[in-house]
Design a protein around this nucleic acid. Sequence first.
DNA 1: TGGGTCACGGTTTTT
DNA 2: CCGTGACCCA
Length: 683
Amino acid sequence: MESILNSLNDAQKEAVQQIDGPLLILAGAGSGKTKTITSRVAYLLKNGIPPSSILTLTFTNKAANEMRNRALSLIDEQLSYTPLLCTFHKFGLLFLKHHISHLDRENNFVIIDTDDKKRIIKSFDIDLPVSLIASEISRYKNNLVNPQEAIAGAQLPNFKKIAHLYQKYEAYLRQNNLVDFDDLIALPYQILDQKPDLARETSERYRYIMVDEYQDTNDLQLMLLKKLTTAHHNICVVGDDDQSIYGWRGANIKNILEFDRLYDDVKVIKLETNYRSTDHILECANKLISHNRNRHQKSLNGTKGKGDEVKLLSHDTENQEALKIAQMINDFLDEGVNLNDIAVLYRINALSRSIEEGLNRQGIAYKMVGGVKFYERAEIKDIISYLRLIANPNDDFSLKRIINKPKRGLGKATIDKLQAGAHDQRCSIFSYISEHQTELKKKIAKKPFDAITRFVDLMDHLIAKKEEGSLETLIDDLEDSFGIKSYYQMLPDAQERVLNIEEFYGLYRDFMIRNSDATLDDFLNDISLQSDQDQIDESSVSVMSIHAAKGLEFSYVFVIGLEEGFFPLLGDGTDIEEERRLGYVAFTRAKDALFLSHSESRFYKGKRARLSKSRFLSEAGLVKGSLKLNKDTAGYKKGMLVKHKIFGIGRVLAVSKVKRETKLKINFAGTTRDILASFVQKV
DNA sequence: TGGGTCACGGTTTTT
DNA sequence: CCGTGACCCA
């Protein structure tokens, strides 16, 4: 027990030992949050709490793995059962595997990603942007609004449309037994809500619950947690409201700001001692974040001494910026700094290109986190679709993706016929083409018919393979049957794509060897919850978005693109406080040296734009403030035409200022609405 | 059916 | 600027 508490400060000790009742740990950046959580898990175990009663929820797999390792290393004895420590989504998946039958569904469902979701929506005929529909559906789900309610509640024609698409989308998912990311949280909640006994039982099972990164939970996750604590109130949430950066994905900062209203007798412990950064860095971060109003008052106290001043780097162009930073990094390396200790961070991925070029020119090894994700590459998704179809032949969605890949002469016309035929028979496309061949033959020409027959035969063979359990070699049979690799060999970027395919085959075999009793479904679900955060830890400079840098720390940090418009990123529905929190997160990644860089101009979307310094630089005390407020107000005038995503085109009736925003009174086809200027575009 | 050309629009950020 | 989607012709 001593060994666990020994290395903790007083606040951390208190947090670790406070195991009963609701507890909010406000853990500032670099205040030893992970250490506190892992010590707390260890402390619970040491106090005889059975491992199976402890549930710890995190945001990324990476955080989950790291915490598991650290917690277990604090315990000497071997555990027969490891406490469940996973992401919210993984927890949802495990729960649904056991309980989805309560919703009258089979547990061989498949998880779809955002791209799949958009494809499904796109396959309906729509006249609104897919991204809008997708995000509205997400919103409905996160607010527990079902399609019927959505339709009943929708007022405007476009919302009516979206609500109907939502209904169609849900029907599609159900029919194909698909589950999207939102469902992984929403469906468990629905089940627990319908079955109070199950809620109680589940809550009894997990008597000690901990939640990491609580500032980034959404409403639905909060409700789910509420269900999980029906039988007790032993919930410990850990987070930092100043680091809430996922509002765009539905995270609700109120969850952490108002946690004490959720349960009686909430104990609050603040961890305000920062062990990571030097004082100059902290001062800069503290100053910046102090401009936010919506936050728990607190500040970080350093322990490392003053350190070097935070440096502002000014450049004319992004190429100069990249060159200069690459040179500086080279100098650090000459001084003996480790590649792993250096990071370049930015607000938007588009800025990575120039930096990569600069690092390449200087011959500096770097790793990009994010960008095009491995599992989202077209060639990988094709193979995944084949596997999904083998796992579940009724998955029309996957079938349509690969039925003509590699090309077998099956175009839109044929596929439409198959779809119509399947619809008439009320069965999936696959069962239609395998079981109604005589009928099919009458409908389509010989050539496509032969292609389909051959496709079905090969698939049947693979399905049989799966059923007899030869999963390890299934991937080779798949390649032998369909020649996906050789197909991509002929396409552009062949080399890279083939390498990706080979890597994927390797991952598949590896998974099947390591998990000998796993099913194909297990594999598919496992990879769909994987992010590529978990990269190989070779020695290199890290280049990534600030979001990707959450939870990480580096000795030397460069933040680039500190210009109005890029950071803060200004556009539809910008939340300036969240932008500022992102700045805070970026600054507090640095341990010893922080460099903030801006450029006078940048080449973006095909043209070069002149840019002014980010307001965050003056707010952090780095440049003397010459804040131009309401810069974009001037653009709007009475009588002007503007366009809104949902309301369409309207005419401006009046322009006014509210706080720092421009508010417009707009006439949309006879209806007058007050709307913030940031939500409309000039026509 | 599939390949080629042309116009458009767009990017935050991720489980 | 680059990738995607619509449209047209062989």
